[in-house]
């Protein structure tokens, strides 16, 4: 087994572990730390794919900013409320069936997936390559991103303002 495989197995199992922990832990802060663990191991996977810039962005945006927003989002809700255990056997069976169907579908879909020739020079000046691609081939999507961000900003302002109006 080469070192690459070992690192890949470690990182992917940490990512899955973080996801499972997030679903099963009880306290909000612990859940968030589990999500951060998943994000960090995904950043490691990006590094393995020679996508250094994406890995840095993953740490910068997801592990930092998104977690802050998530913590606020959860702190704003009533999270102290005790969850009563609701074990419906029919529901459990249906969920299990859904998971199996999903697995089979995805497995059949990606089994013969072919991405074309493997890119071999991605690690050379990674950020510069991304910059050239974005600003000469994908200009319209890039400008659309600014519109999407603007919409998110305005939506948040409208929402928060509406909330305050109710208090007065």
């Amino acid at each position: 087994m080469s070192g690459e495989v070992i690192v890949f197995l470690l990182l992917s199992s940490t990512a899955i572990l973080g996801g499972i922990l997030m679903l099963n832990l009880k306290k909000v802060i612990h859940m968030l730390l589990a999500v951060v663990l998943t994000f960090l191991s995904l950043a490691g996977l990006y590094v393995m794919l020679s996508a250094e810039f994406v890995a840095a962005v993953q740490i910068l945006i997801y592990s930092g900013a998104v977690t802050i927003v998530m913590i606020f989002g959860i702190m704003l809700t009533k999270h102290q409320a005790k969850e009563e255990k609701n074990k419906n056997p029919l529901r459990t069976t249906l969920v299990g069936l859904g998971i199996v169907v999903f697995f089979v579908t995805i497995y059949l879909a990606i089994r013969n997936l072919y991405f074309g020739q493997e890119a071999t020079a991605l690690h050379v000046n990674n950020t510069e390559q991304i910059g050239i691609k974005i600003f000469s081939y994908y200009v319209i999507p890039f400008e659309l991103v600014s519109i999407v961000l603007l919409v998110a900003l305005m939506g948040a302002v409208v929402l928060a303002k509406g909330e305050e109006g109710d208090e007065k």
Binding site: V69, F72, T127, E128, F142, A160
Partner: peptide
Amino acid sequence: YYLFALLFVIFDVETVFLYPWAVA
């Protein structure tokens, strides 16, 4: 507080797009 966090994230994303632009 949530609004401030969201503002921060939006301008964080903007900054991320500045990096490849500046390098290339």
